[in-house]
Design a protein around this nucleic acid. Structure first.
Lengths: 241, 241
DNA sequence: GAATATGTCAAGCGATCGCTTGAACTAGTT
DNA sequence: AACTAGTTCAAGCGATCGCTTGACATATTC
């Protein structure tokens, strides 16, 4: 009783060192970038000793890796759930908009979490240590996403799919990274950090791009064109298959 | 005669220290990122003394700034020339595809130059020193580009334009940054570094997105919709106005 | 209550950071 | 030959880097 109470109090007052380090590092990496943040910056902000990083994680890079694993696990569960919901047995009716939403929306549903920024900004970070983590963490989800998109867009050659995927990926990452340069140009009334608006305005843009006619195919020969949205609705709310 | 010859030979054999530093730093920054490259890395690669950086530029940040100024000057001249060519007196016939091409193509016409990578990768670099340079360097061109896009897309509210601009910007930056993750997924036959393919496949994607119907506007009320391409052609080759 | 496992801490390792210094070298001018 | 201005150089400044160490505190087990 007293023991449990003490344990609870301890847990309520302060997360363990491990989590404090992850929380602090996440914020700092998002703000300044992996390379520009030192291990002492992290432990200072976390209020723990420098050695704790190496005791709990082994290296600075391992901290970054753990940050991504911790956040992406629930996000990817949501992604796969949403994806499963919108790919039924009838391949003919795959909705490009729904697939894009399944892939993008869960990554934006993080509120003001620093991880959204971090994920966007590290996506093009050239530091080898960072890229190593990115490769290890993003691979499987990206594959299942592109596989679904491929089924939904049978009119596209692999090359066209490659370039369109790059556009989708780039737009998504840029929105997440939110470097505030556009805000600087368009004015403070606008912000890329508004998740609802991102889904509302960016998804239709990307859907229009994905479903536009292929560049290479002569206009005559034509395979089945994709449907942009689910038959009955253009919002997320959809009936089960 | 001998003097001029000596000067020429000297110039032919080795660019001056200033340029050697810029060339070396450009490659290293592109490969590893600004924060992960030290001044000694730069001067070692350039084959000059460490102090030369501070004698010629004053700081590491000033080197990054000079790299961007040196490359962007000719690129921005091309951009403005192409933009001037596609915005005539008849606003009604502005071609979204041509405007996008004017903005994007010149940044890709760098061959294998490291600057293309560098520009893409630094665009979302959160390091304050890097962001400072980005803000100072990109502002004016971006404004004139968005102004032209705005004229070409009168059917869009400022908010819709903001989000579509973000998608365009993001796609462009991601393609330039070429983090090779898509290549890893799609296979080695595909590469984002192919400038011709980028223009051929990405511009139509982005044009389709830009010219898609507005999200907010009720379908009934409708201002003039934009033309996707110039009347006679969908390639870069166009007659003068 | 000694033994053991787990975690924290101050101190400091060698290496490297951005940057500075003052002496030396190289023109070209008088 | 003396002078000047522009440039390069080795050496090193204090600070900080990622990471390690060994002493110590705490909690659990037998």
């Amino acid at each position: 009783m007293t023991k449990a109470a003490a344990a609870n109090r301890h847990e309520a007052l302060s997360a363990d060192t491990r989590d404090k380090i992850l929380d602090a590092a996440e914020v700092l990496f998002a703000e300044r970038g992996y390379s520009a943040v030192s291990t002492r910056n992290i432990t200072d902000k976390a209020g723990v000793n420098v050695a704790a990083i190496f005791y709990h994680f082994g290296s600075k890079q391992a901290v970054l890796d753990e940050i991504f694993k911790r956040r992406l696990e629930p996000i990817n569960r949501r992604r796969e759930a949403m994806l499963a919901e919108c790919i039924g047995p009838d391949v003919e009716n795959y909705s490009v908009a729904d697939i894009l939403t399944a892939f993008i929306a869960p990554t934006l549903d993080l509120g003001t979490s620093s991880f959204k920024l971090l994920a966007g900004r590290t996506s093009t970070d050239p530091n080898p240590e960072v890229r190593e983590v990115m490769f290890s963490v993003y691979d499987s989800v990206a594959r299942s996403f592109f596989a679904a998109l491929d089924k939904a867009c049978p009119h596209l050659s692999k090359k066209e799919m490659f370039w369109r995927a790059a556009c989708v990926y780039g737009a998504m990452m840029y929105i997440r990274a939110d470097n505030s340069r556009l805000q600087y140009i368009f004015g403070d009334d606008f912000s890329l950090s508004n998740a609802e608006e991102a889904v509302r305005y960016a998804i239709p843009f990307l859907t229009a791009g994905m479903t536009s006619p292929p560049v290479d195919e002569p206009a005559g020969r034509l395979r089945k064109m994709p449907t942009k949205t689910a038959p009955s609705s253009n919002t997320k709310k959809r009936k089960g298959s």
